[in-house]
């Protein structure tokens, strides 16, 4: 059983973190659609890639549910949080892939899946900053304000990634439990749990 250390993870998730996870779900779902239509290397590797994409999407959906639940803290959310503290408290970030899965395709850890979502969103903001940096001449006030806002988003997402890295084990536990709950609800025809909408 893990430590009872104070959870430094998302008590109230930022809009940026939720946006990052939701955007990543959309992107991976589009890749999945394209792979299903036959893109990528043929044969077993493609099927493995499809399976891994589905798995990653399920874990991101689970994390998205968890983040949304943090706004209202219902009973299931508090129980899940407690489980995360008990069973995942001592595991820290080990980014990258783990467990070889046959020919080449390896499974990402839950932490890496969520971290990549944050990294993708972070790079999206950094891409905007680069585009803005190409503007010729002195920046107008509104462009300066935009740059400041984008830099603020970058800083916030970097902070979110640091917090997440300290809670890698808890992310794993929560994604594992919640993705299975969602799957069972799907089998029972209950659909996905309602979590409410997080205010911006």
């Amino acid at each position: 059983m893990g430590s009872q250390a104070k959870w430094t993870g998302p008590e109230v998730p930022s809009r940026l973190a939720l946006e990052a996870v939701d955007n990543r779900i959309v992107a991976l779902t589009e890749y999945l659609t394209v792979y299903r239509a036959g893109a990528g290397s043929p044969g077993r590797a493609r099927h493995q890639r499809i399976r891994e994409l589905r798995h990653d999407i399920a874990r991101l959906r689970a994390w998205s549910h968890y983040l949304r639940g943090a706004a209202r803290r219902p009973l299931w959310w508090r129980a899940l949080r407690r489980l995360g503290i008990w069973f995942g408290g001592e595991r820290h970030a080990r980014p990258g892939r783990r467990r070889p899965r046959g020919a080449g395709v390896r499974r990402l850890s839950a932490f890496s899946v969520v971290d990549r979502a944050l990294a993708a969103q972070l790079e999206d903001y950094q891409g905007r900053l680069l585009t803005l940096g190409l503007a010729r001449g002195p920046l107008a006030d509104d462009l300066l304000a935009t740059r400041q806002r984008l830099q603020g988003c970058v800083d916030r997402l970097q902070q979110e990634r640091r917090l997440l890295a300290a809670d890698a084990g808890r992310v794993a536990v929560i994604c594992w439990v919640l993705s299975r709950v969602v799957r069972v609800r799907g089998w029972l025809g209950l659909g996905e749990p309602r979590t409410g909408v997080l205010d911006p």
Binding site: E123, D124, Q126, G127, L130, T131, L132
Partner: peptide
Amino acid sequence: RQVAPPRPV
């Protein structure tokens, strides 16, 4: 070049 500004590719 950025492929499709502002995307980071």
